[in-house]
């Protein structure tokens, strides 16, 4: 019987926090299927990360520590894990669904001809077979997936689907074994020139008390005045979903989400935003969340405290007037 592997993503020698979410998912899957869980830590100079991971309840930590794995590039990563998998033959290999995982794990899947269920939010076992839940159609629908055939199975878990704090600790630290891989023959085709942060954000939305965020539902740039007035009435900052910034209706530094800013104001108003996961990760910890959307089934309503289902072009002006009245302005 093969093991379940939870692969840790490292950054500057540290295990990324989301890796512990993968371990939490792995512990749950291991319990459901009666298989052992092992952690895999790969990178360069990552023994410290492996020691942190070994505190969690896993059978062992497999350490793949090779200079060629820094900086991250897809070729040596793929080769390293492929060699380890071919040597040890795990049944499942689990990953966090990060940008880096999107960059190389499909390559691993193709190289090993393995199935890969990506961006999973939950799973359950049915007759010994795990059923993985995904949210296709931008989170509007749920889908149950199973693996076909008996080959190697790869799974990646959406950020926040499992909690890092739920990754139980072991009675004592797990053993760390060095997993031998030979990358001498691996050609690194990608050359990294520069890794950098775009010029400092001009607006720091993380300090805002009230945020009014606008999405594609606004239709066009000329309509933004409506939202600006509401933000002004509330004394809040204006923010946006990605498509609004992609279309250059608002500058990039107003974007909330996985590739924008992460905020937690006392009040977050989402107007004409559907609530895709990449947006939600940037704002779901806000105090009070209000959603205004014409679609009663929009996923944003599942994180909102209050909602109005309706046309924003009618709702927003009325709301602005009511807020002004309430604040005596």
């Amino acid at each position: 019987m093969g093991a379940i592997w939870a692969v840790t993503q490292t950054e500057k020698g540290e295990a990324k926090g989301i890796s512990f979410e993968t371990i939490a998912a792995g512990q749950k899957l291991a319990a459901a299927l009666g298989k052992p869980l092992e952690a895999v830590v790969l990178g360069a100079g990552v023994r410290g990360a492996a020691e942190k991971v070994a505190v969690r309840k896993v059978e062992r930590v497999r350490l793949i520590d090779v200079p060629k794995l820094d900086p991250y590039t897809p070729d040596p990563y793929t080769a390293a894990l492929q060699q380890a998998i071919e040597a040890e033959k795990p049944d499942f290999v689990l990953f966090p669904h990060t940008y880096q995982v999107r960059d190389w794990v499909p390559r691993l899947a193709a190289a090993l001809d393995a199935g890969f269920v990506s961006d999973v939010v939950d799973f359950r076992a049915e007759g010994g077979e795990p059923v993985f839940v995904r949210q296709p159609y931008q989170g509007k629908l749920n889908a149950d997936y199973v693996f076909a055939g008996t080959g190697l199975r790869l799974v990646s878990f959406q950020a926040g689907a499992f909690l890092a704090d739920d990754a139980a600790k072991g009675d004592s630290a797990a053993e760390i074994v060095e997993q031998a891989v030979d990358l001498s023959g691996v050609e690194v085709r990608t050359q990294v020139l520069d890794t950098f942060q775009e010029v400092e954000n001009k607006v720091d939305l993380s300090r805002a008390d009230v945020i009014v965020a606008v999405g594609r539902g606004i239709g066009k740039q000329e309509n933004l005045g409506l939202i600006e007035e509401l933000a002004a009435a509330l004394g809040g900052q204006l923010a946006a979903s990605r498509p609004v910034c992609d279309n250059e209706w608002l500058p990039m530094d107003r974007q909330i989400g996985s590739s924008g800013q992460t905020v937690a104001p006392r009040l977050y108003l989402a107007v004409g935003i559907s609530g895709a996961i990449q947006h939600l990760v940037g704002m779901k910890n806000s105090g009070t969340i209000v959603a205004i959307n014409k679609d009663a089934n929009a996923p944003i309503f599942s994180v909102a405290d209050y909602g109005i289902v309706g046309d924003l072009f009618e709702v927003v002006p009325a709301l602005t007037a009511k807020v002004r009245e309430a604040r005596g302005a």
Partner: peptide
């Protein structure tokens, strides 16, 4: 296919 969709459904809101 390596993976199969078994069921598509409207999510129950949490």
């Amino acid at each position: 296919r390596r993976v199969e969709l078994h069921r598509l459904y409207v999510p129950v809101k949490t």
